[in-house]
Design a protein around this nucleic acid. Structure first.
Lengths: 242, 242
DNA sequence: CGATGACTTGAATCCCGTCAACGTCCGTGG
DNA sequence: CCACGGACGTTGACGGGATTCAAGTCATCG
């Protein structure tokens, strides 16, 4: 099953900057495949030397690094519209891994076509850079969390960030959004142990900040979460999508 | 004092990919200023909405984020050849600050010229993206440190990374390199307290891993540092410079 | 020569990690 | 039908790595 960019429902959402027909047609020539992968599938392997470039079409993905004894750090989560594998495409080898957190659909742009894009369609090249810079911004924020926030603040910052992003995508209803993370994912993303994550999570839930059930998170007290997180992100302006 | 790109000593070093005369001439049209700033000067202020794009010509720079109560996290260090301010140029506002760690010289590329670069010289645009991805790689590694390494490992990883980068720039002599960081900088970069940084640093020094004196760091036991850091970076291949 | 910034050092405290056990849900298969 | 195992979540006890508080040394500098 192939989804044509011209009729892509994702890119029409208000979260994204609307592109000209010409640009969309061009992007469609780049896209070779619409890939479906099950939860848990490896998208990019650490050290992989032929990773492609992907746009997340549906589902959640995370990038990670790990140490030889198994300690794992999740670097950031990618949601629909986000680009995955830019580093891996530009460098000889991938310096990180990427895994499907849920069942996912990915638009595949072969790494060998990346240069074409710069030659032929500078607007799109600019957007690629923009999305790369967006990744830096996400990782920056996570580094601030891991380095300088305590456990409760880290969780609040993660929740606030994901909630805002999902809201922008139109995936929030009644203060509630899909939340596929296990506590192990949360721990790995925040640089905490599983046990301590569990206990801190329990405190925040019982304080009425938010609740998690049936794979969904409900934000019960947005202001308290925002205060803890010090994450005063305003509405996210429409952004590029490849 | 203006340094012409055509006669720029930095870009001729083997650390960098050599560019065609045409590209260099073009880059020179982008560069409006050769800026000198003293140690401690702000290069980009958090929230700044008109930050320019800079290439570090000489000296060290760091990017940082901070929380409202003063907790500060250094995101990464930028050395000669590195690009600063890409996010700040692409987005409405800077989401981080940048400060001169030493006296620095910066090549200034006005943010309004960034788009020109994509239209007129795709090779250079590609390099901008490459350098953006390079920043992600650096921050990724720092996030792995802050999230999953203990204090000694973090310091080893920082030392290993900076040493390798300085070596590539040809700034290492007799296993020794300039090292302008204070212990406070190290603490802020690694997500540690000043006191604990001091004590851990003392242990590593007395174990003979490295020594610091007169603003220089000498790597006495590269293998032990590499083992602690699990930072097996091979030689860094020549990279783009704008 | 007082002031300031960087670095040291010791003691008390605590946040968080580790260990260990237990509970629940769910899919599988005997 | 129920035993079994695995994934995920929960809870208590304990210890330690790291923070915080406090004080003091040493250079540099106006």
């Amino acid at each position: 099953m192939f989804i044509r960019c011209a009729s892509c429902p994702l890119r029409r959402r208000p979260a994204f900057r609307q592109k000209s027909d010409e640009e969309v047609r061009f992007i469609e020539t780049l896209k070779t495949e619409h890939l479906r992968l099950p939860e848990g599938a490896d998208i990019i392997l650490p050290e992989q030397d032929d990773a492609e470039l992907f746009t997340v079409f549906s589902g959640w993905v995370f990038r990670y690094k790990e140490l030889s004894d198994g300690r794992r750090q999740i670097l950031n989560f990618a949601l629909p519209g986000d680009l995955i594998g830019l580093q891996a495409s530009l460098f000889e080898k991938a310096l990180h891994g990427a895994v499907a957190l849920t069942d996912v659909e990915l638009c595949v742009i072969p790494r060998r076509k990346l240069w074409q894009l710069y030659e032929k369609m500078p607007e799109v090249a600019y957007d690629v850079t923009w999305l790369g810079a967006q990744t830096v911004a996400l990782v920056d924020e996570n580094l601030l969390s891991a380095g300088r926030r305590n456990a409760a603040e880290r969780i609040a910052a993660l929740v606030a960030s994901l909630y805002k992003r999902m809201e922008t995508l139109g995936a929030v209803r009644d203060n509630s959004m899909p939340f596929p993370l296990t506590q192990q994912h949360i721990a790995d993303a925040l640089g905490l142990s599983l046990v301590h994550t569990n206990k801190t999570l329990a405190k925040l839930k019982s304080s009425g900040l938010f609740s998690i059930a049936d794979g969904r998170l409900t934000l019960d007290n947005p202001r308290a979460v925002g205060r803890l997180a010090q994450h005063f992100e305003k509405d996210i302006a429409p952004r590029p999508i490849i």
